[in-house]
Design a protein around this nucleic acid. Structure first.
Lengths: 212, 212
DNA sequence: ATAAGTTTGTGAAGTATTTCACAAGCTTCC
DNA sequence: GGAAGCTTGTGAAATACTTCACAAACTTAT
């Protein structure tokens, strides 16, 4: 695996993640190799795209044969930074936070949930999965002390920027936000936002303009 | 408002949705006009991008002044197809489905949840928000009879394609999926997928390669 | 050992999207 | 009413991303 010489597009990284998912599946059922064509069909993309995406990071396949499933799986885990544990906190112990807690993908992929936070006194101290809901006011100190890497934000839009500022000051390095608002952070902090309303409205647009 | 002559990029539609959100906020506090620069700062994009996005649909602003907030709000609602009600079903009455039910954005923006479905007998018949969980086997008929427009899919990846096929056959027109798998549908059906794992892995990649 | 058949890796071409830059149009001030 | 000051709308330029197309490299069959 070589290091990419130029910046990799976000769309490429998303597809790598998808390739990995399917490769893990193929690996589990004992399939040894997979062609770019097979991966493309599974992921709903094109063979050329698969090859181009992978080629940014090295040359993992064998001509005439395809890609070695197990080996490529490991390469992709390495590339995506999944062969190490990331420390994650969940901020907001509401329904969304709760749904996230249930999500097995976290542990499965090396994301360790080390804390859950809320500002509601009724929720603080309550057991929550393996953990206990902690007071949001302790969040910044905890982030700093426990070297938390990623914060998952599941709080109302109005509170989001304020909490983000505190966490950034405390040294957070990445944020996955479910708050329907745009977040402003310094360049060294990575942010992804999942916005339900935006997705639904995208569908509404598609339905409205489907003929055109 | 003119109809766009060429296909509008998905990224543009996502931004329109974001502009709308902030415009509604500005409208609520009585602000009369907003410049592309102001909208850009709120949304984390550039003034040129804002103007270009809007220009695909018409010429809503006044030079020297900016865009009329209330009027543009209505135009965007129209463009995005939000001035009509869409019939939505939620498929999967687990934690994610439950979090979605709580989501006020649905009703607020004209998405009427007309049914919740699950295949688990323990859940069928239970009250769930305003509704009652229905048997998944009745889903296809309901979709056809009630002209359901959008299905929100909150079920395991392994079950997803099968359910999608049934709904497509029953006449569904759009799907918002939270199942971490790629879905195959005919061209006339719009699909959006929200994939937690993909977002987290995107952050993991960013953290791993932040220096590069 | 050779031929036939696959499939990768990748420059080059093609498309799509964003950014630039500025004329045109509107408001406000004097 | 004219000048100064903003801000839009938009072609053109720049950048980014995807697709093409084919030589190179490998496997398998004979």
């Amino acid at each position: 695996m070589t290091l990419p010489t130029k910046r990799i597009a976000e769309s490429t990284v998303r597809r790598l993640s998808m390739y990995l998912r399917y490769l893990e599946g193929l690996d589990a059922i004992g399939q040894r190799t997979a062609s770019s064509d097979e991966l493309a069909q599974l992921c709903g993309t094109t063979p050329a795209q698969v090859r181009k995406d992978l080629s940014f990071f090295g040359s993992f396949g064998k001509r005439g044969l395809g890609y070695p499933v197990h080996e490529l799986t490991e390469h992709l885990q390495e590339i995506l930074g999944l062969r190490q544990a990331w420390q994650v906190v969940i901020v907001g112990a509401g329904k969304i936070g709760s749904a996230l807690a249930e999500y097995r993908g976290f542990k499965q992929r090396g994301f360790q949930v080390v804390g859950v936070y809320d500002k509601n006194p009724d929720k603080i101290g309550r057991p929550w999965g393996d953990a206990v809901v902690r007071d949001m006011s302790t969040l910044p100190d905890d982030v700093t002390e426990h070297h938390v890497d990623i914060a998952v934000l599941a709080i109302p839009a109005d509170d989001a920027q304020d909490v983000v500022d505190q966490m950034v000051a405390a040294g957070i390095r990445a944020i996955l936000s479910f708050a329907p608002t745009s977040l402003h952070v310094p360049a060294h902090v990575a942010v992804k936002t999942v916005n339900m309303a935006m997705e639904l409205e995208g569908l509404s647009y598609a339905l409205t303009n489907r003929g055109a």
